[in-house]
Design a binder for these strands. Sequence first.
DNA 1: CATGAATGAGAGTTCATTCAT
DNA 2: AATGAATGAACTCTCATTCAT
Lengths: 211, 211, 211, 211
Amino acid sequence: MPKDTFYNLSKEKKAQIYKIAIEEFADYSYEKVSITRIVEKAGIAKGSFYQYFENKKDLFMYIIDEIGKAKMESMTSLIENIDKMDFFEFLRQLFRKGIEFGKSKPELAKVLDRIMNEMPKEIKAEIYKEGEVKSLEMFENLLKAAIEKRQIRSDIDVRLVSYMITHLSMSVSEYHFQDMPVKEENFDKIIDTSDSMVEILERGLGFNVFK
Amino acid sequence: MPKDTFYNLSKEKKAQIYKIAIEEFADYSYEKVSITRIVEKAGIAKGSFYQYFENKKDLFMYIIDEIGKAKMESMTSLIENIDKMDFFEFLRQLFRKGIEFGKSKPELAKVLDRIMNEMPKEIKAEIYKEGEVKSLEMFENLLKAAIEKRQIRSDIDVRLVSYMITHLSMSVSEYHFQDMPVKEENFDKIIDTSDSMVEILERGLGFNVFK
Amino acid sequence: MPKDTFYNLSKEKKAQIYKIAIEEFADYSYEKVSITRIVEKAGIAKGSFYQYFENKKDLFMYIIDEIGKAKMESMTSLIENIDKMDFFEFLRQLFRKGIEFGKSKPELAKVLDRIMNEMPKEIKAEIYKEGEVKSLEMFENLLKAAIEKRQIRSDIDVRLVSYMITHLSMSVSEYHFQDMPVKEENFDKIIDTSDSMVEILERGLGFNVFK
Amino acid sequence: MPKDTFYNLSKEKKAQIYKIAIEEFADYSYEKVSITRIVEKAGIAKGSFYQYFENKKDLFMYIIDEIGKAKMESMTSLIENIDKMDFFEFLRQLFRKGIEFGKSKPELAKVLDRIMNEMPKEIKAEIYKEGEVKSLEMFENLLKAAIEKRQIRSDIDVRLVSYMITHLSMSVSEYHFQDMPVKEENFDKIIDTSDSMVEILERGLGFNVFK
DNA sequence: CATGAATGAGAGTTCATTCAT
DNA sequence: AATGAATGAACTCTCATTCAT
């Protein structure tokens, strides 16, 4: 995490550095992100950078953290109303929120995407030490509650399902942005697909006369 | 693809270089893979390497190709009997084959894993030009056939489901190898989990008195 | 052109690097000039070099520029008095100045010579983008003025003659330094030859009883 | 010079290698000419090349030699009639022959051009050890004869003038091919310019009422 | 606290040439 | 005589990080 010297900077300078760093991590893979380029774009001295951050990874961790906070923030309204919803309704909302996040903060979403899809295992592991675990835990608790409320089957492996949902939620946007440009008119389609995914999770693929 | 000079080498030398290269791509991300290290480990001259391969990407493509072949080979027996099986049975077998592949060729599986999880988008795209499309197509055809045979619901988005399955199949092993070491005794558990995943895909998570 | 980091260096360091670079470009063809050798001779780190210059060409362009300035400087006194002279007198002085430049700055002259005589066409083109054009233009203007003053024939192709003069002026020193060492005692001979060249340009080779 | 092994090759093979080599030296500077590329294009083994030629320079010398012969051949008809002509008429014809050579054997002319304009001094020197000396000697003899016949002035430095003519003859085509493409319709213009150059050499630039 | 010059290991790649077969 | 695999030094250039000022 950044040193005090960074936090002591003026709001503007902090924001400026943050913005440039996000851009960089959105445009390049971790290995290709260049501190030299960052300090040039940000107009600060190389030495100053190393007064603020330990090293590249330190900056990266800070970026991750901020993105995490931003994502959490976009989810709070949903989380607060969690009790008012059926489990699958919640899932639907959750997936939608994810899509909306990608729409309103595309740069942050790009970074997130890079993290998920092209981060060396070792680094991913470090990032997830807390992050993912929390996310998984949340799902596990939700699942357990839903089982008790008889909203979902009781004979499932809670941990496994958490894992499946986490991964599926991330691939929703991926699925779309490979085919369509991120435009307003495509937005509804994406939401539809997302809903379909939840529906499949709920009802399964199997042919069943009773359903 | 490698130059003739590579294919003209003795079986042993080819195998040796192949082995070292696999190791390298298993242990390091694409960017971090070092030709210098490879030639040192393989005990060949730098110049020789460039007699065999155009450049790093050329070696990489060769590796990919070989892994692809190996994976295909491990699947043939299954594909041949595809008609004798129910769709979900096929899925179960497919997931199992994937796990077995990871067990019998762990180094190859590691490389495959790196490709799926940490390859820059641009490179992935190049690799998949055919590969993934084919895989998706296969699933789409299977799904359509299964629908006709009333094995699965007819109201699903075939393309979307193909995508979901592809991704889930890849994350089966990922799910396990983060927690447990790849040991014989864990193998049964992994198979169980894999089967559970398919079962969820089949029946869904939803609570249903009729099921 | 060099980066700020170069210009910010101490006078001595700049001069040191400049000197070494001139030596290198005097001793080797462009392709054979080695950055590795330069940094070794100059006692700086490889990385430092690339803090100062974009690349080899950047260094080269800087060198060219400096030589151009030096040459221009050696010509200013002549250019200022251009109106006081007959065209051929001017030419004589110009050729002499060229010879003197080669005598006082032999290393720079050597580099200049390499540029004229062994630079790949493509690179030459880039250097001349402005340089040579200007030189040709100057001659063309001089020739036109001389025609009006009835100092030279009016029935010549101004552009062609400019070209001839430019090339001859460059070969003056070449003519000598292939045979004689650059010594004080040879200097007068060279001046004589140079004057002869101008005389031939003025009067032609033709036998003419009236002359 | 090539080894016997080269001369023992079949006419076709020799011609093939010669053709490829000319192409290569026409398209690339000496340093950039690649033996690897040559043997690939020519379809011979690397080792074979070194059975035929000592090294790159050896091949190059052979090329030069062949071009020299070709050029000489194009000049023989002229040389044979040398006595029937006035000195300046001869010069005019000589320049023209040079231009025609460039037109009929453009690849050879390109190589020649590279030699004149971008060959490192040291190599040039070696090439000229005989070649240029001969050319200069020829001019010197011609000039002396012309002086005796009262076709040209007697008060000139014969050696210097030989040098000037040699260089000017080479720059004739250079002058043109920088501006115009080598097309049939430009050919007459080039001849005109060439004639003008000779005319200036004959009569000089000086304004003279008697001329 | 800010600066930015200095660092040097390391990257991928090219090359002419040798030599065992 | 023909082959072509093997060589390894040399090349330009990039990089994250350090440290004296």
